[in-house]
Amino acid sequence: MSTSLSPARAARAPAKRSALGTLSDWLPRLVLAPSIAVSLFFVYGFMIWTFVLSLTNSRMLPSYDFVGFAQYAQLMANDRWWVAASNLVVFGGLFVGICLVLGAGLAILLDQRIRQEGSLRTIYLYPMALSFIVTGVVWKWLLNPSLGLQAMVRGWGFESFTFDWLVNPDMAVYTLVIAAVWQASGFVMALFLAGLRGIDDSIIKAAQLDGASLPRIYARVVMPCLRPVVFSAVMILSHIAIKSFDLVVALTGGGPGYASDLPATFMYTHAFTRAQIGLGSASAMLMLGGVLAILIPYLYSELRSRRHG
C-alpha cells in the first residue's frame, strides 16, 4: 500500500453522521444479533430450562409441579447413577492419561527426523475423522470373544487365552477406554508434534552442547515448554470423556446390565426411554457442573495469560 493511515485520521472519519453512517455503525450489531439471540435462548435459556425441569417431578412429559431438590436427592440414592459416575472417573482418568502418554511418546519419536513422517502421521490421526458409532461397531467386532481377537489368538494355539472384557461386567468399561484411546490418541500426538515444532531449536542445541543426553533434554527442557499443550490436551480429552455417549451406545450399550453406563447414557436413558424427565434433567445439570469445574480454571488461566502478553 502506498498510503499509510494514521490511527488519528481513521478515528476522525465517523464524524460525519449521516443516516447511512448510523446504519453502518449498527450493521455489525445487527449481523451479530441473531447469533446472540440464538445463543441466549438455545444455550443459556435451555440451561435454565433444564435446571427448572430438574426441580419438578416431570415423568413422561414435562410438568411444572416443583419438588425442590428431590430429584437430586433421588439421584444421590440411585445405584445406577453412582455406577455411571464412577465409570466416568475410571474411563476419563485412564482415557486422558493413556492418550497423553501415547500421544506425547509418538510425537517425540516422530520428531527424530523420521522418513515417511507424513504417512505415519496420517495413519495415527485418521481414526479421529470417524464417528464414535463406527469406532464402537468396529471394536465390538474385534472384542467379540467368539469371533474376534480372543478367537484369533486361540486359533494360533494359545487355547487358554481369554479376552472377554466386552461381556464381563467388571471389565466392560475398559473396552471403552481401548476404543476411545484408539480414536483420540493420534489427535494428542498431533497437538504435541505441533508444540514440539514450535520450540526454538537453539535451546535444544545448547543443552546438547552441554552434554545432556536426549532423554534428559526431553524430560528437562522440552516437556516443560509444552505445559500449555498438556493443559489443552487434558482439557479437550476430559471434555470428550464427559460427553461420551455414542461410543457407549455402539460398543457396550451400557452393558452388561448397566455396568458400563456413563452419565451421558444415564441421562439419555432416563429422559428419553424411561420417562424420568425430572431425574434425567438433574443428571444433565450435574454433567454441566462437571464440565464447568474443568472449564472455569481453563478459561481463567487462558484469560490471565492473554492479559499478560
Binding site: 438455545f42 440451561m47 425441569l53 471434555h239 464427559i242 460427553k243 441421562m267 439419555y268 444433565a284 472449564l295
Partner: peptide
C-alpha cells in the same frame, strides 16, 4: 456454547 454437554439442552 462450544463447551456445554449437549445433554443439558436435549429436553428443551
Amino acid at each position: 456454547g462450544c463447551f456445554i454437554p449437549f445433554q443439558v439442552v436435549l429436553l428443551p
